[in-house]
Write a protein that binds this DNA or RNA. Structure first.
Lengths: 207, 207
DNA sequence: CCACTTCTTTACCGATCGGTTTGATTTTAG
DNA sequence: CTAAAATCAAACCGATCGGTAAAGAAGTGG
């Protein structure tokens, strides 16, 4: 496609006017709009207004709406969703679970954020036009589940979980509670109420 | 508003051509479209095609898109969501919880249905235009939670649950797991996997 | 059979959708 | 200082959005 000619120097022939807005900052604003309104609910008008740029700038910087959404979702992972990686790094499985649940509650009920979880509500259902994005989000959610499952599998092999533990069921339970917390946060439930949901869920923990 | 004049006979002055389609059947088709694509993702074109009627017929029978959605949601309650009422009628709290969780799994993974839960994914997030509907769905979800909480409160007063039970937390936990199961079903998780999630959740039960 | 009511069909309405073209402006490389 | 490159602003694109007007077709009550 747009492969550069091998004989041409692979260096950067950049020049011209630099962009006048902060790409990261604009992406952050877009993330919040997608978070609140979902992929299809977020119109180009709403996005560009929140990002404080105009359409051609958006398209030059992010390709198209789908590309912008993908970057916003990725940024969500390294931003608000960063707690997941930290949770997986905890030494004990119990701590992993606790940090996952507490983190889910914290993000979904953060008063400075749109509420809920972008990964859950960003493209849970779509029109036929948005099916590609919807499928990508399904895959992303399932990849996250697999990461958690791998971590708990390791815990079991380390004796950190009983050998008889059904790791797949436990993982999917954990993820389901996290997702449910996100839905309930989007329904307006308070941080305290949802933290008590985490408390109940942790009672089930094998250790 | 449209109150009839008291002097006028309140009888039905109906006449004319009867509608040529089955209203319930059309509503059922609409419900499935909303279930799969959400309130805003479901276009009038998609709806009328699935219902096999044309737009003016839809508007004559259901008012507008929002009215059709509200009726579809209500029908979901008396149709697929009927298990909730049956669950609340069980004699023991434990049976209530079990039927709620099994029912949620069954509906969300029914292979003849769109998957997931209309109450969850019908209008979890919307554009600014759909905010009224989104708010209504929040209220509907919370009303359901209250019903379950009332039932469990009764169980506690009957000695069916320990007196020290935090009923609000237990209720919200139950609902969160149900919602999470719906999200996971929309992510493609199998019925067996989600039934094992219900198994894990039930381990937490006080009795 | 008639007068009337209602439904159905087609075609259309303004508004908004995601995305782009045009052209002036601003910067850098040489 | 000039030429190339990239950005920005505004206006514009066909398509689709939810919703309707008009006119013909099909029934009902008398």
């Amino acid at each position: 496609m747009s492969l550069s000619n091998p004989t041409t120097a692979p260096a950067k022939p950049r020049a011209g006017r630099p962009r006048s807005f902060d790409r990261e900052q604009a992406l952050d604003a877009a993330m919040r709009v997608f978070w609140r309104q979902g992929y299809e609910g977020a119109s180009l008008t709403a996005l560009t207004e929140a990002m404080d740029i105009n359409r051609p700038s958006l398209y030059a910087a992010f390709g198209d709406k789908a590309g912008l959404f993908r970057e916003a979702v990725a940024r969500y992972g390294t931003g608000p969703g960063r707690y997941i990686r930290r949770a997986l790094g905890q030494p004990r499985a119990r701590q992993v679970a606790e940090m996952l649940l507490r983190g889910a509650v914290a993000i979904a009920t953060d008063p400075t954020s749109p509420g809920g979880c972008l990964w859950v509500q960003g493209a849970l259902v779509t029109s036929t036009e948005g099916e590609i994005i919807r499928t990508e989000m399904m895959a992303l959610r399932n990849a996250g589940t697999t990461q958690i499952q791998d971590r708990l599998e390791r815990a079991r092999s380390e004796g950190d979980l009983p050998a008889a533990t059904d790791v797949q069921a436990l993982t999917l339970f954990l993820v389901s509670v996290m997702n449910g917390i996100a839905v309930q946060a989007s329904s307006g439930q308070s941080r305290e109420a949802l933290n008590s949901v985490a408390d109940v869920a942790l009672k089930v923990w094998p250790v």
